[in-house]
Design a protein around this nucleic acid. Structure first.
Lengths: 123, 123
DNA sequence: CAAACATATGAGCAACTGTTCATATGTTCA
DNA sequence: TGAACATATGAACAGTTGCTCATATGTTTG
């Protein structure tokens, strides 16, 4: 039986013995569907220019909802909705101080993910 | 005039002198709108589970359209459309060999971006 | 407590997205 | 050249998303 190495081209679409075997190998290497789904969900959060702008703003300083709204020229409501999404995905955390709520980056992961993306875009 | 340091909370929503100044600072630090838009567009590409699965498959081996379709249980057409998107964003490149077209990762950037995301998801 | 303020939330709508279906393009081989 | 195959593309439709508007929640202060 022919067993191509890991990095050789797979045999293509007509039905053959080899074909399904190698497909199975790749299938086995794939992470669970659920995990891949979650990963896509995470990137979806970065995939909106308003949210990206919010994150970049928070790279500079902790900010409250109203200031961010001011900064980006959007409604307080719009920003609050987006912050909710960011918070739900643990990219941002909130700290209440009296009436105002200050948002900041949840961790440095966010910076590095965005940074990697930016490198790719700026090439 | 009061000038808070870079990492102090900004003054909030009522109109004050300080307020607009600090907002302006953050505004100046933000990359151009166009660049942020492109960055969001890039992440949008990662933000779909089909495309993520395709990329993960290509982590293992160069593959043709039909095999990927087989692997993921989707139409050849669906996969071709998604590969188009991936290619347009330079995440993937194509190599024709007779009738079949083999797709592979465009560069290692892709791996590291996806990897960073995966780390965040798996926490 | 009531008024003022900052934020959060829900409904609704316009715009966008991923898939399928039908079909076109490109390649090989008899 | 024509048939068979692999891929690409366009149209259309269902599902999703981000914004706005109206309003609710939570906090401070008179």
């Amino acid at each position: 039986m022919i067993l191509p190495g890991q990095n050789e081209p797979l045999e293509c679409c007509e039905e053959r013995e080899v074909h399904t075997d190698v497909l199975q190998e790749v299938r086995d290497a794939l992470p669970d569907d659920e995990l891949l789904y979650d990963l896509a969900e995470l990137f979806k959060v970065f995939g909106d220019s308003t949210r990206i702008k919010i994150l970049y703003a928070l790279f500079e300083a902790e900010m409250c909802v109203c200031d961010i709204a001011n900064l980006l020229g959007l409604t307080q409501s719009a920003i609050s909705h987006q912050l909710r999404t960011l918070k739900a995905n643990k990219l941002v955390r909130a700290r209440r101080e009296g009436k105002t709520v200050y948002y900041s980056l949840a961790d440095q992961h966010v910076r590095s993910i965005v940074g990697q993306g930016m490198e790719h875009v700026m090439e």
